[in-house]
Simulated scan of single mutants.
Amino acid sequence: MPADFSAGARLELRITPADVGRRVSVRQLAEVTDGRPTFTDTVGVLASWDGGVVYITRRTGETVGIAESALVAGKVVPPAPVRRATAVPAMTDEELDAVAARAWPAPETARLGGWTLRHAGGFTRRANSVQVAGEPGVPLDEALAEVVRWYGERAATPYLQLSDSSPYAAEAAARGWLREADTLVRTAPLAPLTLLPEAAGPVTLSRTPDAGWLAAYHRTGDLTDAALQVVTGGPSVWFAAMPGAIGRAVVDGRWALFGAVEVIPSHRRRGLATAVMGALARRAAQEGATAAYLQVEADNEAARFLYDGLGFSDHHGYHYRRPAA
């Protein structure tokens, strides 16, 4: 990455943990060879600063951990220019599902060839199912038996998350695995979302959900540690809140996930959902995202109608399979 500090400038560390959420440029000591130091620069969003480690999320979505002791300079820099791309990047079903998986990470995972077994104490099917991608590395019946065994050890239902285009969808059906929860992955250019109007009240953005946000989110209930790890996990996570509405976005390179957009019944039809999405979109654009995506259950007609009006279209569908009882 090109240096962001001029050669003659005085090196100063002018960032603190209070700058989490802002775009920064830092220089770190890479190594010392024959008494001569070499440095590397990193530019991105300061995601966190914990335990003596600074975490910065680059425009690509990669999060880099840098030891605080290695920092020799750092400063806050202007937000990245908003790119007004009008087309959604071409992605296969599996590629976009992989981006989505990073935005909703299970605290416990295991690999089975190209498949990823995920467990989060039962919090959402997505975080408690097998992300089926590529080959499992063993014959299918052996792979399914391993899935059943792994989830059985955790007293959990073994679910497969399968793209509708996956060849394993028909294979699982032929073996009696039952289909559940048809879901649509929908995409849209991000730039139009940044122009959504603001509501009368301000939208607050934060890196962590407060008690009010969690209380408004219908999925949390008695929130476990595992569930909180899922909700707060991802490359660059933002929570939006305003009186009567909440939302969540995760920026991962050029993609921004929108989810948990909820409005309490007494505040509906006031434009709060679009205000929350607009605020999140503007933040995502500042971090370099150009495309938006979301996941919505196929039978949720109200949500689909809302997202139709915001320019979202279907990218692909996926569903879950579980063994017959």
Rank of each mutant, 00 (worst) to 15 (best):
24 V>A: 07
113 G>R: 09
91 M>C: 12
53 V>P: 15
45 V>R: 15
25 S>V: 04
149 R>L: 05
129 S>G: 09
72 V>N: 02
40 T>S: 15
30 A>Q: 10
116 T>V: 10
98 A>D: 07
53 V>Q: 15
22 R>T: 12
63 T>E: 09
43 V>N: 03
133 A>R: 15
12 E>Y: 07
27 R>W: 05
110 A>H: 00
51 G>R: 02
49 W>G: 13
25 S>F: 04
90 A>V: 14
110 A>K: 09
145 A>V: 06
13 L>W: 02
39 F>S: 12
35 G>A: 00
78 P>M: 02
21 G>Q: 10
36 R>L: 14
141 D>K: 01
79 P>W: 02
124 T>R: 03
143 A>V: 04
41 D>A: 12
105 P>Y: 03
78 P>K: 06
150 W>M: 06
157 T>Y: 02
61 G>I: 00
156 A>K: 10
45 V>T: 15
127 A>V: 01
38 T>K: 04
124 T>I: 04
95 E>K: 06
124 T>Y: 04
26 V>P: 10
62 E>R: 14
79 P>V: 13
47 A>M: 01
40 T>V: 08
106 A>C: 03
12 E>M: 08
33 T>M: 01
23 R>W: 11
124 T>K: 00
124 T>G: 05
36 R>V: 15
130 V>F: 01
111 R>D: 03
48 S>I: 01
76 V>P: 03
133 A>N: 13
136 P>A: 02
107 P>H: 06
32 V>W: 03
11 L>S: 02
62 E>Y: 10
119 H>F: 12
27 R>D: 07
54 V>G: 11
98 A>K: 12
63 T>G: 11
43 V>Q: 13
36 R>T: 14
51 G>E: 13
75 K>H: 03
122 G>Q: 00
40 T>I: 13
35 G>C: 01
95 E>V: 05
151 Y>E: 08
143 A>T: 09
46 L>H: 14
14 R>F: 10
115 W>E: 05
68 E>F: 07
125 R>N: 14
70 A>V: 05
114 G>L: 09
117 L>G: 11
79 P>Q: 04
110 A>Q: 02
105 P>T: 12
142 E>H: 00
157 T>K: 05
86 T>H: 00
95 E>Q: 15
56 I>G: 15
49 W>T: 13
75 K>S: 12
81 P>F: 07
150 W>A: 13
89 P>D: 08
76 V>K: 11
93 D>V: 10
110 A>M: 06
13 L>T: 12
42 T>L: 04
102 R>F: 03
131 Q>W: 09
102 R>S: 03
41 D>P: 12
121 G>W: 05
67 A>Q: 11
67 A>G: 15
18 A>K: 13
52 G>C: 09
116 T>D: 04
103 A>Y: 00
109 T>A: 09
42 T>N: 12
125 R>Q: 13
60 T>R: 14
50 D>L: 13
96 L>W: 05
28 Q>N: 08
23 R>V: 14
61 G>P: 15
30 A>N: 09
28 Q>I: 05
31 E>D: 15
63 T>Q: 14
70 A>I: 06
86 T>M: 12
16 T>M: 04
48 S>R: 15
105 P>D: 04
132 V>W: 00
79 P>L: 09
150 W>N: 06
54 V>Q: 03
142 E>M: 08
68 E>V: 07
79 P>N: 10
104 W>C: 08
119 H>L: 06
15 I>E: 01
47 A>W: 11
61 G>K: 01
38 T>L: 10
79 P>H: 01
79 P>A: 06
154 R>K: 06
151 Y>K: 07
